[in-house]
Each structure stands twice: as C-alpha cells, then as structure tokens.
Simulated scan of single mutants.
Amino acid sequence: MTTVGLITPEPEHPLLAATTELLRREHRVLAVDPEKAAHADAGPLADVYLLKARTPRALALARGLEARGVPVLNQAAATALCQDRTAMARRAGAAGLPFSATRTFGTLAELAADGVRIGPLVVKSRHSRRRDLVARVDSPAQLAELADEWADEPVVTQEFAENSGWDHKVWVIDGQVFAALRRSELAPGGRGPTLPLAPGELPPDWAELVVRVGEVFGLDVYGVDVIDTGGGTPLIVDINAFPGIRGQAGAPEALAALALRRARAAVAAV
C-alpha cells in the first residue's frame, strides 16, 4: 500500500478530491496543511507528496521532505521559479520558448514614474499568488490610478498582444495534455466562461510546445496560458505550477497514476 501526501490546506479541491477517491480504493491519502505542519518532521511520512500549496511554509515543508529523500511533485525549486515572473521569463527566453517579452520594476510607483510608453500594456505582480495584480493599462491616467492602490507592488510588464480575447488554458500532467478556452480577464467585460477544448483541437504543434515547457521548467503538473496572436502563432503569457485543472476528464486518473509511479520509483531506487 502506498501513502500519498497532499500538501494543501484545501484537500477538498475538486481535482484533489477526485484523485483521493481513486487512490483510496487501494492506497492511503494523507492531507498535510502546510500552515500547521511547517517542517518535514511533522507526523508520519508519505511515500510521495503532491505540492498543491505554494505559500512560503508549503515550499519550506517541501524542501525539507526532499532533503529526506521523499519525492515531491512538483519540486519546491520548480514551484518557486513559477512564482517569480521575472525568473520565469528569463528561463523561457533562454530556452527559446515563445514567451511574452517582460520588463521588471521594483514597484508599480517606479513604473508610473518611469515614463514607459503606454498603450496598451499588461501589468502583473512580479510574484504570482492568489488575488495578485493582472491588469491592462492603456493610458498614463490608468497607470496612475492603478499605482494609487498598488504603489509598493513589485511588478512586471508585457506588451499587450492583439488576440481573439480568449486564452488557451493548457494543462499537463506527466506529459498528458488537457485544454480549454477561457474568456480573458483582460478582454472587454472581464473574465468569461471556460469552454471545453479537446487537445486535438489545439493549433498544430501547441501540445508539443506545452510539453516542452515542463521539460524546461522541471514540472510534472502545470498549466500554460497561451494566446493565439494570429494564424496559430502561440505566445506564452504565464506558467503555473500545479493549477486547479477543473472539469477535465481523465485528469484525476493521470494525477493518481503519476503519484503512484513516482512513489514506486523512489522505493525501487533505495
């Protein structure tokens, strides 16, 4: 029997809950709230851990587990890399991935005072987290208004690329690709519905592109936000470690199989 640990304060998350239901037919699942168990010696060890949370305590817990030889998916270093949009852009650029050109500013107030050309620009928090800043700015007045609320926020900027207003949400679990279309939060009217999209309906070579993202970033479970800038030309605008992957048939099965395979590989390697 394999024990799979979930590093999350929300084990009832739909993807995790469905994966847990599959695993518990023959195995054990242990949920670990990283805000309450902030070190690797807290409680019995599982054979493999799924790192869904991305808080500093969750990363510290994952690093401690890795130091003890326990496999963690995704690894703490890869997860942390995807939280820093500056480092993310550098890694993607060095690998030749079609990633949106990114500039970094110490604070949004610094950006507002920089005299950077406006029209249109996407401004994002440098450090990816829940309820972070993602906004389209079309004028100095809009930028100044944003700076009133987020003055001290470290930010990155990306030039707004004309597109259909729909984001391609592409997720990968151990090389298996899942996809959907979602109305962009930057489109007029804000974020809209998510529509199902079979991987075979992606533009040519996009599936191979997002699988390569995982190789470049050392990720096993991740999401890539891609926009079509015309004629099927992809532009990657964000990469997320262990996203929700809601409503994707086969995703819980793929995640359960990955966890068990990694746990067995770790045992075989001892």
Rank of each mutant, 00 (worst) to 15 (best):
Arg117His: 13
Pro243Gly: 09
Thr86Asp: 15
Leu6Ala: 05
Pro14Asp: 12
Thr104Arg: 15
Thr79Gln: 09
Ala257Arg: 14
Val123Trp: 00
Ala60Ile: 07
Thr8Ile: 01
Pro140Gly: 01
Tyr222Ser: 05
Gly115Tyr: 04
Ala58Met: 02
Thr229Phe: 07
Leu73Asp: 06
Val226Lys: 10
Gly119Val: 08
Ala113Met: 01
Ala95Met: 04
Met88Cys: 13
Leu15Ile: 04
Ala161Tyr: 08
Leu146Gln: 04
Asn240Leu: 04
Glu185Asp: 13
Val134Met: 09
Ala58Lys: 00
Arg129Pro: 00
Thr102Gln: 03
Glu159Ile: 05
Pro196Thr: 11
Asp47Met: 06
Thr55Gln: 04
Thr102Val: 06
Ala113Gln: 10
Val137Asp: 02
Leu30Glu: 15
Arg212Asn: 11
Lys36Cys: 13
Trp171Arg: 14
Arg25Pro: 00
Ile7Arg: 03
Asp238Trp: 00
Arg212Val: 01
Ala263His: 10
Leu6Asp: 10
Ala207Thr: 01
Leu235Tyr: 04
Arg130Cys: 14
Pro203Asp: 12
Glu149Cys: 10
Leu219His: 02
Asn240Tyr: 07
Phe217Trp: 08
Gly93Val: 02
Leu255Lys: 06
His127Cys: 12
Glu253Met: 00
Ala109Pro: 08
Arg28Phe: 06
Cys82Gln: 09
Leu61Phe: 03
Val72Asp: 10
Val48Gly: 07
Leu50Asp: 01
Phe178Tyr: 13
Ala60Phe: 10
Arg131Asp: 15
Val134His: 02
Ala141Gln: 15
Asp152Gln: 13
Pro98Phe: 12
Val177His: 06
Phe105Val: 04
Asp148Phe: 09
Leu61Arg: 03
Glu26Thr: 08
Leu65Pro: 04
Leu186Lys: 01
Pro11Cys: 00
